[in-house]
Amino acid sequence: MRRYFGRKLLIYGLTFFVAVTVNWMIPRFMPGDPVASMVARANVTKPEAVEAMRAYYNNLFGLDQPLLTQYANFWGALLRGDFGTSIWLFPTPVSQVIGGAVPYTLALVVPSVLLSWVVGNQFGAYAARRKLLDNTVLPVGYVLTAMPYMWLAVLLAWALGVIAGLFPVAGGYSFSMRPNLSWTFFLDLLHHWTLPFLSLFLVALGGWAIGMRNMIIYELESDYSTYLSALGAPARLIRRYAFRNAVLPQITGLALQLGVLVAGALVTEIVFAYPGLGSLILKAIQNKDFFLLQGAFLFIVLGVLIANFIIDIVYVVVDPRTRAGMAGAQA
């Protein structure tokens, strides 16, 4: 088991290292003088922002310094929590801007991912090898999972927001409100949260339901199921065992899908102008705020790595085989 976690941590450590290095390297691939073109491309009007940018990039690229020193400086700044200063929201530090957006993104992603996983697994398991249900769950699941996240978001916003008028279609809370710790504000938050949550939940739901359905069918074909059937065990028992075994690859699937789910959250936030990382990234791109963009990138990578590690721990708790100290590293 120690080997299992050691290996995982090594991979995550390397991944973070690669991500940071990519982050450091990509600006150097820009054609021409990176600092000049960066400053030129940034449509900043504030002169002090231009200065900050030039100073940061000169430090970042420090073309007079040896390459290794530049790289070390980059890591140094990172470890001090210094992601630079936002150009768009000058002079707020990038870490602070991102810190303000992260809670909104988490509030969307965590419940929608977990709930869609749980509900999707239930649906899929129930539908497998039941003709009538299978014939509805499967097509609906495929349509949902094939939808671009932002499109379902737009459709929901249009149908339930614009036409039915049930939910607001923009923002994290009403313009007229200021964030405070009251029930009215909380309800307002919830009201704004519902549609983006629902659209993320639905798209993800389809994928989990299909995955589970296929896994259950596979498990029902397996030797232990055949043996139990030969001994006359009721379908209920066999299905319960199949579910238990089919959940394991679904947990691995959750880890593999995290990137896609986060991507879905980003574009969904953009549709609803929800004040999370997605909207922030859009603003960063529109304002050519590269510090902010790079900071958001590192935050997302870090978040996905942490989530992966949590899933690894859960997997070990759920799968007796990894605990028995065998067959560990394959996950």
Binding site: T226, Y227, A230, L231, L237
Partner: peptide, 29 residues
């Protein structure tokens, strides 16, 4: 009528301890 299958190596549910599996199987019958 009972069966010892040729796939006996993989005939047991991998995620249940034997005692529990046997108990559940018997109870279901």
């Amino acid at each position: 009528v009972s069966l010892i299958p040729q796939y006996a190596m993989s005939a047991l549910n991998p995620t249940r301890k034997i005692r529990r599996m046997v108990g559940e199987l018997l109870r279901s019958r």
